[in-house]
């Protein structure tokens, strides 16, 4: 038991070290990029060419293979930011602050992708680009939170202070997001019911489900790759003047 705990603490300390992360990520990056790309290709090709068309929606439903993974990733990233914020404030782990800075723009991009792909999907199926329902509204607010985090970060000169500020905001936002979603839900049920039922409880056939799951997996891998790259860039920015970084650059030349 103690051995396991010991190795967990060791891993934790290693995770907090910039040089260790930089070297391990340079090994992880090629293989994970390759995996992400291949799995994405598999999921997308399967989804677009080999899965059956939907009975009611026809071919347009295939945008699901972009939309659902993007939406799922967008939410997960936000909650990972909140967890990182907690870790940063409680244990003062530098890497967690850097993680928030690196991941926020990625999360924002996926949120935009989810919103845009949702609108493109909605137009032909519901006859409108946008509906004020709980999911769409809370995704929009999610985007606002991402933008607030990015804006707040860039307003500080001192990186450490900026990390702490965005940690606080990420946590408060994460507490607030479910409340927002719930309150839009209540509001929606009270308003005159909208003529279109958007998210009907439908069972998705397994032929459609498998490629979708593969796509979701590939999006998470993609986020992993983008995250690694963004974090490496951020480490390079912060540690440019440090000895270990100079040494490493020299070695690689």
């Amino acid at each position: 038991m103690n051995k396991i705990l010991g190795s967990i603490t060791l891993f934790y300390h290693k995770l907090g070290s910039y040089p260790w992360f930089y070297s391990i990520s340079s090994k992880l990056l090629p293989i994970s990029t390759f995996l992400a790309f291949m799995i994405f290709l598999l999921g997308i090709v399967w989804g677009i060419f080999y899965s059956p068309s939907d009975v009611t929606q026809g071919e347009i439903y295939r945008i699901i293979y972009m939309h659902v993974p993007a939406a799922s990733v967008a939410q997960s990233i936000y909650f990972s930011l909140a967890i990182a914020g907690f870790v940063y404030l409680v244990w003062k782990m530098k890497m967690a602050g850097l993680f928030i800075k690196a991941m926020a723009p990625i999360g924002a991009s996926f949120t935009i992708l989810a919103l845009v792909s949702g609108a493109i999907w909605g137009q032909p199926t519901w006859g409108t680009w946008w509906v004020w329902d709980a999911r769409l509204t809370s995704t929009l607010v999610l985007l606002l939170f991402y933008l607030a985090i990015i804006g707040l970060y860039s307003s500080f000169d001192n990186k450490k202070t900026a990390d702490q500020a965005v940690s606080i905001l990420a946590m408060v936002g994460a507490v607030n997001l479910p409340i927002i979603k719930k309150s839009v839900d209540w509001w929606n049920t009270l308003h005159q019911p909208s003529s279109i039922r958007i998210f009907e409880e439908s069972t998705i056939s397994s032929e459609m489900l498998y490629p979708l799951l593969i796509c979701i997996l590939s999006f998470y891998l993609m986020v992993f790759v983008f995250g690694l790259m963004a974090m490496r860039t951020e480490i390079a920015k912060r540690e440019m003047t440090k000895d270990w970084f100079k040494k490493m650059v020299k070695k690689n030349d």
């Binding site: 607010v141 707040l152 927002i180």
Partner: peptide, 15 residues
Amino acid sequence: LASAIMLPLSLPVLI
């Protein structure tokens, strides 16, 4: 910036 932080947080209250 302060508005960009405050307004999304206030949404549930508004609703």
